[in-house]
Design a binder for these strands. Structure first.
Length: 490
RNA sequence: GAGCCGUUAGCUCAGCUGGUAGAGCAUCUGACUUUUAAUCAGGUGGUCACAGGUUCGAUCCCUGUACGGCUCACCA
């Protein structure tokens, strides 16, 4: 950055001056006795007279500095908040005060002193000793408006986190959300496992993969688009309740709810069907909201959302009929196709009836599903790992759930009939041959696993990024991913 | 991939109909021992994203490029 060179040069000059005082600007350690919030807790009652009996040490980044000749106020920011410090030349000594005058906002310092309350009532550390812990040579953004530019905020998340406490709060909440879900699953006997990110055969979802190459094996490998097939192998192996927070990679477009790498929770429960998984899903998410917010009613963007179970359950066909006015039930494939085209759905012409139903759903229903809603019983053509409905083999036992017009999760009664599964793979292989680059690859080893026998199993995937968006009221997935994907700067 | 919008000092932003750029904060100098957007006085700081074009003259108009945002498409 040529433009900042002057300001950086000024700070480098100060660095040299500080060294001339015999001070090492980048020491190896410091031992604080208190965090900022611990000071606020322990000394909340204190009045204007300093408590000389309890000296403390606190460390943090100088965020503001107000020099007044022979004394100075500053605010330190640490991992938990801010605390004001008061530095007086007569308390720290003439030379240390000279050194302190060369400190800038952004510098990280340690302060030893006693706690008191100023005339205006602010809890403050009266410094007796100050130590530079790290000199900052790049100026912080402006103190009042913070860092606003989205591009800089995403590219330099560190600066965003320093300047915008509400951003830090979002990511703290994200961690709490994951932790809450993990705790709940663990308490229900689920086992957390790790499965391959590098896969010789990708599968479990419809998406184009990222491809890489292993030099020693001399073979292409794919970054996983899902971990579904590995987790179900573990069900075959006898782990009856498994889950994984999986970083998945899909080589698709990016927008407000898609990042090329994202986090999905997948879980599988032996002997359960999708009705049980529905109950687990609504409880899991309602309880997560309760843990994070103390309530199951939240505000997301312009909507009030109520996670309180039970959520609405509606079949995809019924939802299409309700929102599009087209009842797919009695129509022939040709009639449905014509009806869909007439209401403006763009189709290429070779869609099956089930595909058209799914297209009508995407166009007319999905954006309208604001309150948590289970959409059930998808067409079989779009659901190659779900079990057929016993009474109607054109549809499967599957559900997706939608909140605020966004798909947040996907689940089914897992297909465990190896012969049926092979047939579904073959249909996918035909699509692949016909040019559908998002169709599945045949996975013989997965079929072999199913041939050993997989118990009836319910499976679930939840988009953790999207769930975090909802629970932190963030509009874009980039605001819940610490380092979202960006084009190179130059 | 398409459309619309944006890119001006370290940061946040103004800049009218085309006449070679401003503010606040930051920074620097000086004053100041209870301030907190400290205050007061005085300074420094710009390839107006980049490259072309039109024009006597372009931050401003036109074209292209880069990056970003939003919307749509693709996509769960």
């Amino acid at each position: 950055m040529e433009e900042t060179k002057d300001l950086i040069q000024q700070r480098r000059d100060k660095l040299d001056e500080i060294r001339k005082f015999g001070v090492e600007p980048y020491p190896h350690k410091y031992e604080p006795t208190h965090t900022s919030s611990a000071i606020h807790q322990d000394f909340g009652e204190i009045q204007e007279t300093p408590d000389d009996t309890q000296p403390i040490r606190v460390a943090g980044r100088i965020m503001t500095k107000r020099d007044h000749g022979k004394s100075s106020f500053a605010h330190l920011q640490d991992g938990e908040g801010r605390i004001q410090i008061y530095v007086r030349r007569d308390k720290v000594g003439a030379e240390p005060y000279k050194i302190y005058r060369r400190f800038d906002s952004g510098d990280i310092i340690g302060v030893e002193g006693v706690v008191f309350r100023t005339r205006t009532g602010e809890l403050t550390v009266l410094a007796s000793a100050i130590q530079l812990l790290s000199k900052s040579i790049r100026p912080l953004p402006e103190k009042w408006h913070g860092l606003q530019d989205k591009q800089t905020r995403y590219r330099q998340r560190y600066a965003d986190l320093i300047m915008n406490p509400e951003v830090k709060d979002v990511f703290l909440k994200r961690t709490q959300i994951v932790q809450a879900i993990r705790d709940m699953l663990n308490s229900q006997g689920f086992i957390e496992v790790e499965t391959p990110v590098l896969q010789p055969i990708y599968g479990g979802a419809n998406a184009r993969p990222f491809t890489t190459y292993h030099n020693t094996l001399e073979q292409p490998l794919y970054l996983r688009i899902a971990n579904e097939l590995y987790l179900k192998r573990l069900i075959v192996g006898g782990f009856e309740r498994v889950y994984e927070f999986s970083r998945d990679f899909r080589n698709e477009g990016m927008d407000r709810d898609h990042n090329p790498e994202f986090t999905m929770l997948e879980l599988y429960q032996a002997y359960a069907d999708y009705h049980q998984i529905m109950a687990l899903t609504e409880t899991l998410i309602a309880d997560t909201s309760e843990i994070i917010h103390g309530t199951t009613k939240i505000h997301y963007q312009e909507h009030d959302i109520d996670f309180t179970p039970p959520w609405r359950r509606v079949s995809m066909v019924d939802a299409v009929r309700e929102y599009s006015g087209i009842d797919p039930g009695p129509l022939s494939p040709d009639e449905l196709y014509t009806a869909a085209v007439n209401v403006g759905v763009e189709l290429v012409g070779d869609e099956t009836k089930g595909k058209v139903i799914a297209e009508l759903f995407d166009a007319f229903v999905e954006p309208k599903l604001i309150q948590p809603t289970f959409i059930m019983d998808h067409p079989i053509e779009v659901s190659p790992f779900a079990k057929k409905k016993p009474e109607n083999p054109e549809f499967v036992e599957r559900f997706e759930f939608f909140i605020s017009g966004m798909e947040v999760g996907n689940a089914f009664s897992e297909l465990n009939d190896p012969v049926d599964q092979r047939q579904r793979f073959l249909e996918q292989a035909n699509s692949l041959a016909a040019g559908d680059d998002e169709a599945f690859m045949m996975d013989e080893d997965y079929l072999r696993a199913l041939e050993y026998g997989m118990p009836p199993t319910g499976g679930l995937g939840i988009g953790i990024d999207r769930l975090t968006m909802l629970l932190t009221n963030q509009y874009s997935i980039r605001d819940v991913i610490l380092f979202p994907q960006m084009r190179p700067e130059n």
